[in-house]
Nucleic acid binder design. Sequence first.
DNA 1: TATCAGGTTGACTATTTAGTCATTCTAAAT
DNA 2: ATTTAGAATGACTAAATAGTCAACCTGATA
Lengths: 186, 186
Amino acid sequence: MDKREQILKAALTLFNRYGFDNTPTARISKEAGVATGTLFNYFNSKEELINVLYLNCKDSLTRRLSDGLDQEKTYRSKLKRIYINYLRWSLEYTDEFLFFQQFCNASCIGETTRKEGLSKFNSILELITEGIEKEIIKNVNLDYISTVLVGILNSSTYYYIANPNLAGDEEFLEMSFDFLWDSIKK
Amino acid sequence: MDKREQILKAALTLFNRYGFDNTPTARISKEAGVATGTLFNYFNSKEELINVLYLNCKDSLTRRLSDGLDQEKTYRSKLKRIYINYLRWSLEYTDEFLFFQQFCNASCIGETTRKEGLSKFNSILELITEGIEKEIIKNVNLDYISTVLVGILNSSTYYYIANPNLAGDEEFLEMSFDFLWDSIKK
DNA sequence: TATCAGGTTGACTATTTAGTCATTCTAAAT
DNA sequence: ATTTAGAATGACTAAATAGTCAACCTGATA
């Protein structure tokens, strides 16, 4: 019944489906079941709305990413934990994942907002650095490794989203993680 | 001096920078140095314009992708050839590459156009199939391998675009290809 | 019951923009 | 020099849309 939440949820769905510019605020209000003016009581502008959405998504993912990380003993299992956390979050919050993919580089997301969002992968960056120092993974430019790693992470996620039947398949999980692991391990 | 070409070029630049909906046709015309009406002499609508752009890009990339492929002897070198072709094309036609990335899933690209575009990676698909049969690369679902492979290809390309100084660095090229190769090889 | 604060409403406005079309230009042919 | 076909022009229109605001609820308090 929280109107603010309803507006955010409606906007997420509609921005994903039609894009930012092709989603009139009137349509968001309608989908949320509120008047057109109500949207502007909660958000000063359409841009503020999408920026709030962006930060919400980022927070949700960041919180999840390092779940249970300190219970893992080996380096490989730590990385796998992050891989799984990323996948699970994306399958649980698919709309949020797709939103992130579509808008992480969009111009309607302000520079300030985006900079906050960059901290998203801090836990990943730390782990890569550790892996290079311990000579577990390839001794290559940190930027390049993280770029490729996130690339694999995202493409794998897209595949999981397109094939929901794989959700509980432990064998496929291990196999798919090996694509990532073999790519970066020494 | 070909006005049609000038319009296409201006549209490519502006769509990349501001997005489809945030680029008025008047602005495209101005950038191209023609009157607003002229654009509609060559294209029936703004949508037709972006669809033509999309197919042009696709053709340009497809033609390049299998260049010199039959001169390569080993399976690995064939794959590397495609990797290099993809990279070189993207560095030579960076605007086109970025355009493709931004609009390959956009709703303003019609279904018909997109289906034509899917044939883009035919040569890659064939090569993967061959690799699985010959037990050179992992025996996994063709779709998954190509998804991950394109993911690595694209993320690597982004890195090269962000670091133009790497353009002629043979060592880095070999190293970066290993990320792809190690990921999928048996 | 009367008052009041603050959330909610939706008709309205000012602006933007895709696409039109009557007119003007251009250059080749007669 | 005149005609003419088709390309090019840009002022204009009809539609869409972000954001406003005066009026209207609602429910708590006196």
